[in-house]
Amino acid sequence: MAFTNTEKNFKSASPRTFVGNYKSPAFIDKFFHVITAVSSFLIIAIIVGIFFVLLKESIPAISQFGFIKFIFSTNWDPVRELFGAGVPLFGTLVTTIIALCFSIPLSIGVAIFVTELAPEKIRGFIGGAIELLAAIPSIIYGMWGLFTLAPIMANYVEPFLQNSLGMLPVFNILFRGTPIGIDLFTAGIVLGIMIIPFSASIARDSILLTPQILKESTYALGTTHWEVIKDVILPYSKYGIFGGIVISLGRALGETMAVAFVLGNKNKLPTSLFDATTTVTVKLANEFTEADKDLYLSSLFYLVLLLFLMSFVILAISKYFLFKSKKAHT
């Protein structure tokens, strides 16, 4: 395609042009081609470069602790130089899961309301507000979490949960401890709010892709809004919605500043929702500057490598589902 275009341009250009003149359309086309190609390959080179640097820097830790042992060890003792990724990896996963539990229903609800139910006038308004959430820097979420949300959680929400759900058998394990508002639960909610725009806007776009004719013919059969949403729209857009969720998941996995403020930075496996713990990125932000021993620094690099691999896998999954959703629509 590109090639024939070039030829066409070349032919339609003025007869005085000749190859080699830097103003000739053929040259411009080629030049443009090279520039775009270089930028694209540069990205790949950077990613590969980052991967190899991470791998190289983490070799001392890999050879010291191995893979399985490092992942499952809950040690993190800089004094005795015993390191393990168990707590930060677990903390990363759990905060992300809590965030998703909070954000998925909200973002799907928002997307359905904005596309199907809301009056035309306020659709744009809500959509804009959601997108604005994404524009707020994460440190602002952290400060807000620490100064505003944490006291509310500590004084009202968490004692309430302890007195209601905490009274049930089995469930009560999740609600033990002194509620101080700096814990998994608060961090999960802050993260959940942060990732709503990512899943909501993609969900909205994929819901909008549902063919109008399909919806109208369903309505013509006398179905309700609820039935159309449940049986037509959601099945039609499920891959897209899922893709959006996975992208927001990737975002939640890598979030640092907002979580660092409200998670409590403690290297201990949490047993209750009201326990403080840590995540990979929070650990890095806290300890990178002062990691004075080689093995210590190398273990931090090893953590980054694991996060890098985790993000890679998650992005691959998301791409796969988006690809599938595109295929389903065409």
């Binding site: 003792d77 800089p78 500590a154 101080i180 403690k266 806290n286 004075d292």
Partner: peptide, 29 residues
């Protein structure tokens, strides 16, 4: 049990980032 150093494995508590982080947590809790 703990030892000494720039960062150690604290058996109990929560961690604030920086002097201002600790000051803030104490002020609030």
């Amino acid at each position: 049990k703990v030892g000494e150093g720039k960062s150690v494995n604290w058996p109990v508590g929560i961690g604030g980032k920086g002097n201002e982080g600790v000051a803030n947590y104490v002020k609030r809790t």
